[in-house]
Write a protein that binds this DNA or RNA. Structure first.
Lengths: 214, 214
DNA sequence: AGGCTTGCACGTACACCGTACGTGCGTCAA
DNA sequence: TTGACGCACGTACGGTGTACGTGCAAGCCT
C-alpha cells in the first residue's frame, strides 16, 4: 500500500480537514505535514506559501457549491435556491467559511456563483446596473449572515449560544435590549436567513425596471 | 516629563494605532511593547492575553460610534443615520474594522448601537419579533458591506481596485460576468451602501405590522 | 518605625511558527 | 552513460505568545 504522491489537492484537503476538526488556529504547515505523514518542507514543492494554501482552501470550499439551477423556474425561486446553496456549504464547512468570507479571492474560483446569479437577475429583466447592485446586496447579506452564524458557533460548542447575556445587561441603561433579551438571546438561524431572503426578494421585486420586462 | 503609567487603555490605543499604520499582521505583543517603550511582559499586567487585547481593540472601535440620534425625526431617517454612523467608524479605522466584524464580542460594548436601533424600530411600530429580525437583517447587510469595502481596500493600496479582472475571465465560460465586467470591476461603495440601505428601508416599510401603528 | 503584602515592570526561557537554503535520491532525456 | 530535473526532507534563523521568577516601590497594619 504505497502512499499517494503529495499534491496540492491533497494538501488543501488535509488543511480543510484540520480546520474543521480543530479550528483555523490549529492550522500550521508543520501540523498539516504531520497529518499527511510527510516532511514540512515537502509542502512547499506544491504550494508557494501558507497564504496561498489558505486561498486554496477558500477556493476549494467555494467550488463545492452545488447549484441545481432550474432555468424554467421563476426567478424568485432561482434566487432563493442560489442563496440557500451558498449557505449550505457554510454549514458543511463551518470553520472554513470564516476563511472564505474574510479573504477576498483574486482568482476566478468564486466566479461561477456570480455568473449564475447575474444570469438569473438579467433574465428577470433587471438592467446591468441593477443586476450588479442587487447581486452585491445579496452577497453582503449572505456574508454578514454566515459570519454571525459561524461566529456564534465556532465549534458548535455551546448548545445554547447567546449573543446577549440577559443577566448581564443593566435595564436602566439598555431598556430595549433588556426588554427583548429573550428574543436576542435565541437565534433561529434558518428562520432568520429565510426572513432576510424573502425580504430582499420582495424588495427587489418592487424595484422599478428601467428597461424591457420579463 | 515622566511617562504615563501603563494601562489597558494605553495598550489598546497603541494597538489600534499600530493596526491602522501597518496592518493587523504587524500586531505582536513585542511590537506594541516597543511602541510604548516598555518591556513585553509588562503588558500582561494589564491584559490577560493577546486575544483579549484584540477584543479590547474591537470594543474600543465600536464604542467610538457617534450617534446623533434625533428622536423627533422620522424613523426612516433615524435608521439611515444609524446605518451611516456605523459605516463611518469603519472608514475611520479601516484595518481595525476587520477585527470588529470577524470577532464576535461577548461583552456589552456593542450594546448601545443595538439599544438605539431597537428603540427606533419599536417606536416605528414594529413588534418585538420583527424589530429583532429587522435589526439582524441590517447588521448582516452592514457587516457584509463593510467586509467587502475594507477587504478590497486593505490599505487603500490600489486606487482602482478591481474585484474582477476583466481580462482574466473567459467569455465562453462566464458570458454574463464577461459582459458586465466593467460594472463589476468598479464599485462606488458609497452609492452601493446607500442603495442597500434604501432598499432595506423600503422593504421593511412594506412589512405588515402585527401590532399598534405609528 | 518595622515588617509584610501587594502591584507592577522586566528578563529569561520554551515551544511553536513560516520559510530560505542545501542535500540526496529517483526517474526520465539525450 | 550522463546529465538534468523533480521532489522529499533536514537544518537553521528570526519571529511569535506567554509561563515563570525576580526586584523594586508604595501602602497598610501593628
Amino acid at each position: 500500500m504505497t502512499t499517494q504522491p503529495l499534491s496540492r489537492a491533497r494538501i488543501v484537503a488535509a488543511a480543510i480537514d484540520l480546520i474543521e476538526r480543530e479550528g483555523a488556529d490549529a492550522v500550521s504547515m508543520r501540523r498539516i505535514a504531520a497529518e499527511l505523514g510527510v516532511g514540512v518542507m515537502s509542502l512547499y514543492n506544491h504550494v508557494p506559501n501558507k497564504d496561498a494554501l489558505l486561498n486554496g482552501v477558500a477556493e476549494s470550499v467555494l467550488s463545492e457549491i452545488e447549484f441545481t439551477d432550474d432555468p424554467d423556474a421563476h426567478w424568485t425561486d432561482r434566487v432563493r435556491m442560489q442563496a440557500r446553496a451558498f449557505r449550505q456549504i457554510a454549514h458543511h464547512y463551518p470553520r472554513s467559511t470564516m476563511l472564505v468570507v474574510s479573504r477576498q479571492l483574486h482568482s476566478n474560483a468564486g466566479l461561477l456563483p456570480v455568473e449564475r446569479a447575474l444570469a438569473t437577475l438579467r433574465s428577470a429583466g433587471f438592467d446591468p446596473l441593477d443586476a450588479v447592485r442587487v447581486l452585491r446586496m445579496f452577497i453582503a447579506f449572505i456574508v454578514g449572515s454566515l459570519l454571525r452564524e459561524v461566529g456564534v458557533t465556532p465549534s458548535f460548542a455551546p448548545p445554547h449560544q447567546h449573543m446577549v447575556d440577559p443577566d448581564a445587561v443593566d435595564p436602566a441603561l439598555f431598556p430595549e435590549v433588556s426588554d427583548l433579551a429573550p428574543l436576542l438571546a435565541a437565534c433561529d438561524h434558518d428562520a432568520e436567513f429565510d426572513f432576510g431572503v424573502e425580504l430582499l426578494i420582495q424588495a427587489i421585486k418592487a424595484l422599478p425596471k428601467r428597461e424591457g420586462s420579463r
